[in-house]
């Protein structure tokens, strides 16, 4: 198996002609994924942006076998494909889910949990644009604190929840591999994709995916925001690999929040107090993350095949 990297990425395209918005981060991640994994893929996308833009008869943007799943059922449909692959002993194929944050953190969490619990041989990628974008930017369980959506117009949500931590939720199932990535770090993403496709069992990637119309950012900002969200500490790059936790990037100090938040209209209404609260939540999240890494390092490594 040839290692996946920017250098080895083939010229072939497997995701062209889609009707995604200009500068869409989700389509960028999907394009990278399919280029890297090649044509022996079975892809499942739930109802949502990626399905709405890719399968409008008669224009079909996927160059590989792909189907739309019911919104709540990405994990289940993937499992059904994986079950047949097991039953028939089909080799050297990838079963790939590509779902947004709503389809992953909210309505599809049960189905994802079942698939992870059963140790299905699937690769599940959540492209996180931090709201229900296909329906017009409604708050999801992955919408960050302070973000304006069409169902949280002030950006203030009564319970002021932090984002659901999908990597840790996935890792809590004891699966082989879970990691976070962004549109701004293609080498890091492709390395993690390479690892994810090789582990024996479910792998989960949680990928930051800017949405220009939903976030009110420039259409050329998808990569830049990917970098600044990491530099500001709002999106830790982390991976869980068979019980070991690696924080891939430990910023000595965080870049000013404005570097990231200021480039997006959805955060425009935030005041000093809000920014302080976001910074405090970020710091707490990092403490918890480091504690998790230490805790996992202290625990005996899980028995697993390399």
């Amino acid at each position: 198996m040839k290692k996946i990297s920017i250098k080895t990425l083939p010229d072939e395209e497997f995701f062209v002609g889609h009707k995604g918005c200009s500068g869409c981060g989700g389509t960028l991640i999907l394009r990278w994924t399919l280029k890297a994994l090649g044509d022996r893929c079975y892809v499942v996308v739930p109802a949502g942006c990626m399905s709405a833009i890719s399968f409008i008869y008669p224009q079909m943007a996927f160059g590989v076998n792909a189907m739309i799943a019911p919104f709540a059922a990405t994990g289940a449909v993937l499992s059904g494909i994986a079950a047949t692959i097991r039953a028939r002993g089909i080799r050297d194929v990838h079963v790939v889910g590509f779902a947004g944050d709503g389809a992953t953190a909210d309505i599809g969490l049960q189905s994802l949990s079942g698939a992870l619990d059963r140790r299905e041989r699937i690769l599940y990628i959540c492209y996180d644009n931090e709201a229900y974008m296909n329906t017009g930017v409604q708050r999801s369980g992955a919408t960050p604190r302070g973000a304006r959506t069409t169902t949280s117009p002030s950006g203030q949500v009564r319970f002021a929840a932090a984002k659901k931590d999908l990597v840790r939720i996935a890792a809590a199932h004891g699966i082989p591999y879970a990691a976070s990535a962004t549109t701004g770090h293609p080498a890091d993403f492709l390395r993690k994709l390479d690892r994810a496709r090789q582990v024996d069992g479910p792998a989960f990637l949680h990928v930051f995916a800017p949405c220009p119309p939903g976030w009110g950012c420039a259409t050329d900002a998808a990569a830049d925001l990917g970098r600044s969200v990491v530099e500001t500490g709002l999106w830790p790059l982390v991976e869980w690999d068979h019980g070991e936790v690696r924080i891939n990037r430990e910023p000595r100090s965080f870049a000013p929040l404005a570097d990231y938040l200021g480039a997006q209209a959805r955060f425009r209404a935030l005041g000093e107090e809000d920014l302080a609260a976001i910074a405090a939540a970020r710091d707490h999240h990092w403490q918890a993350l480091r504690a998790w890494a230490r805790e996992c390092a202290a625990a005996a490594p899980a028995a697993h095949p390399a």
Partner: peptide
Amino acid sequence: TPQADAGQLVASN
């Protein structure tokens, strides 16, 4: 069925 050949590109963006 509601299906089509993959990569059936019929309209320019």
